[in-house]
């Protein structure tokens, strides 16, 4: 479904600020896989995600979605196949537009946008059913401006907008990190529910080890621009935070940088 082959990317090459963000990254996700990505700040998690989404282009290597090379495809074209939720709850929705208008924007993701009304009776019914699955009562507030919603509600809406057209790939970039604990739990549960129901191929970055262990069926750990650990299946089920920290120490021969950031 998703293939990342020999990707490298260096920022500010030839200057004192030179930073090799990714080194020879290889990653293959099969259909329906739900991968959680952990690693300390600067490990290259977000850079990898930006390369998959097309916000950044790699120096070398290629990206394939559904066996189709998309390495140089511009971000807006590639987003036909990719649903994304950002860390900032304000980033995934348009605040001056209503809930139904935002959903209509997302609904047109994989279609050509036409001069027909974005919201009609049939779509409104569909939006209502979709919003119902969030259990937030948003289905009764279709014509409320999204700017009036709370951060948690906006993030839930972003999650719905990113997933309800069944994209080939779902990218979640620390999408619960900016929320308070109870809202974060809500979004985490919604994520689990939605991914289970739709069987989307998902890549999720998180700083929260517990969350990385609870969610998904595969876990990768990144450090200094490389994937240093890749665990799936039953082995992943048996993982604990202690084991993860121990693994890191074994591979890297050093303590995991900032425990607080990792443990969340």
């Amino acid at each position: 479904m998703l293939e990342v082959n020999d990707i490298s990317l260096t920022f500010n090459e030839g200057t004192p600020d030179e930073k090799q963000a990714l080194q020879d990254i290889n990653l293959k996700l099969s259909k329906g896989e739900f991968v959680t990505v952990i690693g300390s700040n600067g490990a290259g998690k977000s850079t990898l995600m930006n390369i998959i989404s097309g916000a950044l282009l790699p120096d070398v290597g290629d990206v394939q979605i559904n066996e189709k090379k998309v390495t140089m495809m511009p971000e807006y074209k590639r987003s036909r196949y990719i649903g994304r939720v950002f860390q900032d709850p304000m980033a995934g929705t348009s605040p001056t537009m209503t809930i139904e208008e935002n959903l209509a924007l997302a609904y047109s993701r994989d279609k050509k946008r036409s001069l027909r009304p974005g919201v009609n009776k049939k779509r409104r019914d569909f939006f209502k059913t979709a919003l119902n699955s969030l259990h937030l009562g948003l289905e009764d507030r279709l014509s409320a401006k999204v700017g009036l919603l709370s951060g948690g509600e906006r993030q839930a809406l972003s999650l719905l907008m990113a997933t309800f057209t069944n994209p080939d790939i779902l990218l979640l970039d620390e999408h619960t990190a900016a929320l308070d604990p109870s809202r974060a739990t809500l979004i985490t549960n919604l994520t689990r529910e939605i991914v289970e129901k739709t069987q989307l191929t998902t890549l999720m970055i998180t700083h929260n080890m517990q969350q990385a262990l609870e969610l998904g069926n595969r876990l990768i750990m990144m450090d200094k621009g490389q994937i240093i650990l890749d665990i799936a299946g039953e082995e992943k089920q048996a993982l604990t935070i202690e084991k993860l920290l121990h693994e890191f120490q074994r591979i890297r021969g050093e303590q995991l940088g900032d425990d607080r950031a990792i443990l969340g």
């Binding site: 605040p95 537009m97 209509a104 924007l105 001069l115 990113a162």
Partner: peptide, 26 residues
């Protein structure tokens, strides 16, 4: 026009560019 699919995308482009690009609008 501002309520059509294209019009909605146009409004979003003025409101949240990053977001509408992630929904396949140029």
């Amino acid at each position: 026009y501002l309520k059509t699919e294209v019009g909605l995308a146009l409004r979003a482009a003025g409101d949240n560019e990053k977001m509408i690009r992630s929904f396949s609008a140029n």
